[in-house]
Simulated assay, not measured.
Amino acid sequence: MNIPSLRAVSLVAVSFLFAAALPGCNDEVGSDEQARRAYLGLDKSVEKSLQLGFAGFNAATSANIPAQTANGDASGTLTITGQVDQGSSSNKGMRLRVGMATYSDGEVTPAEGEEPVEITYQTVTDTTMQPELTLSLRNIPNGTFTGTLVGTFQMDGELEGEVTLNLTMSGQIEDDGTGKVRRKAGSTTITGTAKSGGDGEFQVNVTL
């Protein structure tokens, strides 16, 4: 599934500011610089997770959405499962889980002049323990949404260990022209943190 990325803020540009003040890293996630790189490898997957969540919302015929899957740009899969509120209300919630299996979007260049890194991500297979994506839709179809993405991802490759996301998001939703609901491109703000298993932390602030 090919999902285009729409950025109002360039993560590469933001990352360059961090790179100027932070040293390089070794193979273990344990510094702000390493947490920054760990997030950049996951960045595309956040947007993909949102799009898959909305696809599941539109496809649902019961409380459980059909599993929605996308490939990593380089390897592996991203799978969204979970539940959505039923009924005729214009306000609905989704309680979703984010699963990854040897997932990678390929090489990421953290900032100008830095060496690219490639990281592979994995989650536990037990869906009740996977990272949680919670979305609240208001005034469907042409309204707003808020949400959170919280959970831990295992890493392999040029960084090893774990990275934990704690993100908050908000934006607008719209009718896609066929009666289904989609996220309005360019309206979504995502903020929060990516933390290492130790004391490393990266402040996330992007617009999709």
Rank of each mutant, 00 (worst) to 15 (best):
Asn64His: 14
Thr120Arg: 11
Ser49Val: 08
Val14Ile: 07
Gln172Phe: 10
Ser104His: 12
Gly197Pro: 04
Thr164Leu: 07
Glu174Ile: 13
Asn2Phe: 14
Gln154Leu: 13
Ser88Gln: 15
Ala101Glu: 10
Gly56His: 12
Ala60Cys: 08
Asp32Met: 01
Gln130Pro: 08
Gly93Tyr: 12
Leu159His: 03
Ser90Cys: 10
Leu96Ala: 05
Leu50Thr: 09
Leu96Glu: 00
Phe54Tyr: 06
Val12Ala: 03
Arg95Leu: 11
Gly76Ser: 09
Gly106Arg: 04
Val29Cys: 06
Gly143Glu: 05
Asn142Phe: 07
Phe153Lys: 10
Ser90Glu: 12
Thr125Ser: 12
Ala38Val: 06
Asp126Trp: 06
Thr148Pro: 08
Ala20Ile: 04
Pro141Glu: 09
Thr146Gly: 15
Ala55Arg: 09
Lys184Arg: 11
Ile190Val: 10
Arg7Gln: 07
Thr120Lys: 07
Arg182Gln: 15
Asp199Thr: 00
Ala101Thr: 10
Pro23Thr: 10
Leu96Trp: 09
Tyr121Ile: 13
Val29Tyr: 06
Ala101Leu: 00
Asp32Asn: 13
Ser90Ala: 15
Ala19Tyr: 02
Gly198Cys: 03
Ser88Asp: 14
Ala101Tyr: 02
Gln122Pro: 03
Ala101Phe: 05
Thr77Val: 15
Thr189Phe: 13
Leu167Tyr: 04
Thr188Lys: 13
Leu6Phe: 08
Gly53Pro: 00
Lys184Trp: 06
Leu50Arg: 07
Asn26Arg: 09
Val9Thr: 02
Thr146Pro: 07
Thr109Phe: 00
Phe202Pro: 06
Thr81Leu: 13
Asp105Lys: 09
Ala70Arg: 00
Thr128Val: 15
